[in-house]
Design a protein around this nucleic acid. Structure first.
Lengths: 219, 219
DNA sequence: AAGAGTTTCGTACACTGTACGACGACTGTA
DNA sequence: TACAGTCGTCGTACAGTGTACGAAACTCTT
């Protein structure tokens, strides 16, 4: 009984369990007490590995950053940037709660810094000036995170939610839709027709942006 | 004394006061009790005008949508889209708490629907196909909201926060920075040099995207 | 065995959203 | 004028939150 090795706590385990919990139940559902339960510990025990909940989330976010693959060095910049963008979207899709918390936490984790540095390095090596690098970085990240944001928000979490929402909206908006012919045509028509494929939609905008950047770089 | 007209409550007043409060103190600080205090009412009185807090926020968000100017009809589509993008960024800057809550609420307010419809209409009228309209809409909004997201997050709320954060980061990351030469060169150099002007940065990416869309449309 | 960490967590406090039901002030009908 | 009914207001209560404090229990060194 003495040294029951029952999963002794440490910061990494706490963080990983928190990420898993948030993946399953959403970030709002994550409380210190529930997380502690998940770990078979008391709530206050967590505070030995995490100074407060904000820092906990900072740590969780950096775990997500760590999942994003760094831009490759052995391919041209466009391919490298494209891959890293796709990888970012995928990571944010695995951890939907993270969107909106990735940028601008007051503390930047190591994985965050490493990724930022690598992206900047890739652009500089490709021949972008310092000023242009900032621009290029800014457009790409705004687009990537913005897209992930919409994608996250749009998609109802569970299928039953989806059905409920769809039915609800048709009912609620039926009266209004007469005033919004373009919504009817585009949204109604498009959704009914081919459905909305987020992956290809994402690539359309991404390539448009990369095309633009390439043109600027070669000018 | 009977009919003391002391600011009798109504949904719009509740919503407007909530927006004002969130503008000043942030959305996390907004609680039903504090909002009620602000209105000189009891907490439970609010529930006569708002079914729950989620719906309250939905209403607040739609007030922000209402501040975004619709695309003009008497100018070319590029100008119209550019203006509404700028207007969107400005609205989100006035109400930083709103970023991340604009899209994908389960209920879309009337101002939201009106804006969406108008944007779609503008693109269709400009000659974009239905499919292309969806693409064009998606890139633009992803970029606009993504940019606003980063801008919101990046900027510390108060000056003293800013100073604290800056000092803190220099200290914390001093050791790490040796590993991140590109961060040093680009961020260090750029911030030190000309500072970071969000407005022009925003326009750079926006014009890049609009250029790309124009090329596609004319193809 | 004694003492010094280090890790665990029970309890408590202030705060959250909101369900329930009571109270008063109005309105309409008799 | 009296009574019934509705509507807006809100006091109280409950379950849940983050976390400060301080007490235990365990581990390791001497």
């Amino acid at each position: 009984m003495s040294t029951d090795t029952r999963s002794q706590l440490n910061r990494d385990l706490v963080l990983r369990t928190a990420v898993e919990y948030a993946d399953r139940h959403g970030l709002e559902a994550l409380s210190m007490r529930k997380l502690a339960d998940e770990l078979g510990a008391g709530a206050m025990s967590l505070y030995h590995y995490v100074p407060n909940k904000t820092d906990l989330i900072d740590g969780m976010v950096d775990l997500v950053f760590a999942e994003i693959e760094l831009p490759a060095l052995d391919v041209d910049w466009r391919t490298a940037m494209r891959r890293r963008a796709v990888s970012t979207r995928e990571a944010l899709n695995r951890h939907r709660w993270a969107v909106g918390h990735m940028e601008g936490r007051s503390t930047h984790g190591p994985a965050n810094l490493r990724l930022h540095d690598a992206v900047l390095g890739c652009l500089r090596a490709a021949g972008f000036s310092v000023e242009m690098t900032v621009h290029a970085y800014s457009v790409q990240d705004a687009y990537i995170y913005g897209f992930a944001l919409q994608e996250t928000d749009m998609t109802p979490e569970t299928p039953e939610d989806f059905a409920a929402v769809a039915a609800q909206q048709m009912e609620d908006y039926a009266a209004m839709l007469a005033d919004f012919p373009n919504l009817v045509e585009v949204v109604g028509g498009y959704v009914a027709k081919s459905g909305y494929d987020y992956a290809t939609e994402f690539l359309f905008g991404l390539d448009l942006i990369l095309d633009g950047l390439e043109r600027i770089r070669d000018a």
